[in-house]
Simulated scan of single mutants.
Amino acid sequence: MRIAVIGAGALGGTFTALLARAGHDVTVTARGAGLAAIRADGIRLSGGFGDVHARPTALEQLTESPELTLVCTKAQDAEAAIAQNAAVIDGGAVIVVQNGLDGVKTAGRLLPRSDSFGALSIIAANYTEPGAVRVTTAAPTYLGRGSGPVDAETRRWQSVLNDAVPTVAQPNFVGAQWTKLVVNMLNALPAITGLSVQTVVDDGGLRRVMTASMREAVQVGVGRGVRFGAFQALGDARLRAFRHLPLTLGQVLPLQMRRRMGSVPNLGSTLQSVTRGQLTEIDFLNGAVVREGRLAGVPTPVNALLTALVHEVEASGAFVAPAEVLNRYAAL
């Protein structure tokens, strides 16, 4: 099958390599050093899914219409990337592999003739250098659309992806996006401090801040009338109960997530963006909680603080010491 992957970062590189290994004809878009590296020596994938050396076609912009397109850019780059390639991908199936809440809606607006789906990936992968990705946690990807049961087209594309990477057809996909948003509260503090996700969760003070950001996200979701989707051993009943727990007891949630990560340092996608000197997608993670909180009339001071701190790190290039993070949190 002719498959295009837009974006050759950690997840884009992972999907490109695994789809090529499964026998698909894959074209990937990239820029700058990434494009040059892939053209010269392909993509080298290592870690959880095994070693793969794929040699996909690499372009700055797609020139031929694929049967399936995966959009694997950061959330803030999705609209421009989809628009740039709309002339050739509109009319084919499109899967947006992305954090945040808006990706599928953006694709649907820009590609009116396409079937648009969302994919939630919990694969942890580090973009080690242009053309090289290491998977630190191999995990399934969850594919779906809308708030209802899984439809036939979702099952069709789930079958295609499942040949390359474990893929689950996800009912109530919109609710699952909100559940994933809660999980993505793992990302901000590593980007602020420069520490791995595991190290942040192991620090009692930082873990408390992380738990507070997760609780706010759940409270906002409830305020917006969301029925959380079942995802990563989380679901609606459990998250609704979590929002009532004191922070001391609620810390079991990030601790359970940490146990599933193993011992290989998980940098988180937001920290990886910071270390590469790129803007992060924090406005689509913690920032999304703040925006949705305004609409729901739910205060979100912790997520507002974490969003602001990530932007400070982006601007200064310097990480914030954990003690200073805790001081800023205490001042709330």
Rank of each mutant, 00 (worst) to 15 (best):
Q158K: 15
L189G: 06
P140K: 05
A8S: 13
G204H: 10
M261L: 15
V150N: 04
M214F: 07
M261F: 12
T106E: 12
D151W: 05
V302T: 09
S46F: 10
V298Q: 08
V165R: 06
V94C: 08
A152K: 15
V94P: 04
R207D: 08
I38F: 01
L271F: 06
R291Q: 15
S147N: 11
F284V: 11
L59A: 09
M257A: 11
M210V: 04
V320T: 12
D203C: 12
G108W: 09
Y329K: 07
T179I: 14
G144Y: 01
P171W: 03
I38E: 01
A233D: 15
A296L: 08
M1G: 14
L326A: 13
A241G: 11
V52I: 14
A10K: 04
L239Q: 03
V325G: 06
D202L: 12
V5L: 10
N162R: 14
T179D: 10
G91M: 01
D202P: 11
G277Y: 02
S269E: 03
A233K: 14
T73G: 00
L111I: 06
G42N: 11
I282G: 02
G205A: 13
R227N: 14
G293H: 05
L326N: 13
E153L: 14
S263R: 15
A125L: 06
A93H: 06
A81W: 02
L111T: 04
G13D: 01
A33T: 08
L306V: 02
A75F: 00
M210L: 10
G47W: 03
P140I: 05
Q272W: 05
L247N: 03
R113E: 09
I123D: 02
V135R: 01
